[in-house]
């Protein structure tokens, strides 16, 4: 749990501070210096419009990581609410929520996100909408599963007998029990959101230029693959490193939880 929190902190810090330490304006066009190789002025070189790639990468962290964080947290809240509704709201609510979940899961989420974002028109708003609408189901399933098993647990029975309100029961008895598993799912969905944002950006359906977003940067870089192949490496590497770090933290957390369960 701690490693995940630390990692999330590092990413938030990167998204907040990245732009502050960037040496140049990420959108400043400088045609005279276009496609420069790495050098003392431009540590990673410049792109086709002469913009500093390092600065764009650092600013891009705000888009790629910040948006992914936002999307995964919205999904977390949505999914948790749906899962609690399914577990606590009676048979009918359960059936409706679970069939909705099935419907949304029936489709590969990235393809669904492409369709949604594309149909609604490119832009950050539809990007967020598309990735959250397709990103809440796993939380809902986990919450429902644990929620149903909690319902017959002694302390939940006691709380109900005492007349504690459903909201207070959710807050005091469900959330602490859900937290570990939700964190594991959240790491997966955070990584997924980073990949989704870059994929949509690459297809041109995501964050719009001139905003520096890693997927959009790759779309720009692709055209100049022959002359400046390195330009294509950096944004992709940034995505891989972030996703890898999150996945590793998530795996470690999951293994720890599994170990604890075995002990208990």
């Amino acid at each position: 749990m701690r490693s995940v929190i630390v990692l999330a902190g590092v990413f938030v810090a990167l998204a907040v501070c990245g732009p502050l330490v960037a040496p140049h304006d990420p959108t400043a066009i400088n045609i005279a210096q276009r496609l420069s190789p790495p050098g003392p002025d431009w540590i990673l070189g410049t792109d086709a419009l002469g913009r500093d790639i390092l600065s764009r990468l650092l600013h891009g962290a705000r888009w790629s990581l910040g948006l992914a964080f936002l999307i995964s947290v919205i999904g977390l809240c949505m999914g948790t609410l749906m899962g609690l509704l399914a577990a606590q709201g009676g048979k009918l609510a359960d059936w409706i929520v679970m069939r909705t979940t099935d419907t949304f899961l029936a489709f590969p989420d990235l393809v669904a996100a492409v369709v949604i974002a594309g149909v609604l028109g490119a832009g950050t708003g539809s990007l967020i909408f598309a990735l959250t609408v397709t990103g809440w189901m796993r939380y809902a399933r986990v919450v429902r599963g644990i929620g149903l098993s909690l319902q017959t647990r002694g302390y939940v029975v006691q709380a109900k007998l005492a007349g504690l309100s459903p909201l207070a029961i959710a807050r005091w008895h469900y959330l602490p029990a859900l937290m570990p598993s939700l964190t594991v799912v959240w790491t997966g969905m955070f990584a997924r959101a980073i990949l989704g944002i870059s994929a949509l950006g690459f297809l041109g359906f995501g964050v719009q230029p001139p905003m520096p977003e890693w997927g959009t940067m790759l779309l720009d870089a692709r055209i100049h693959m022959r002359s400046t192949p390195l330009q294509m490496i950096w944004p992709g590497l940034a995505v891989v490193i972030c996703v890898l770090a999150i996945n590793l933290a998530g795996d470690a957390l999951r293994d720890r939880l599994a170990g604890q369960e075995e002990q208990a």
Binding site: M232, V243, N247, L248
Partner: peptide
């Protein structure tokens, strides 16, 4: 495998193009 699942497919494709087709 961990690296593999962290790589965006489109980027891996671009890298393969870069290596096998362009270079």
């Amino acid at each position: 495998a961990s690296i593999g699942v962290a790589i965006p497919q489109f980027w891996l494709g671009l890298l393969l193009i870069l290596l096998f087709a362009v270079q």
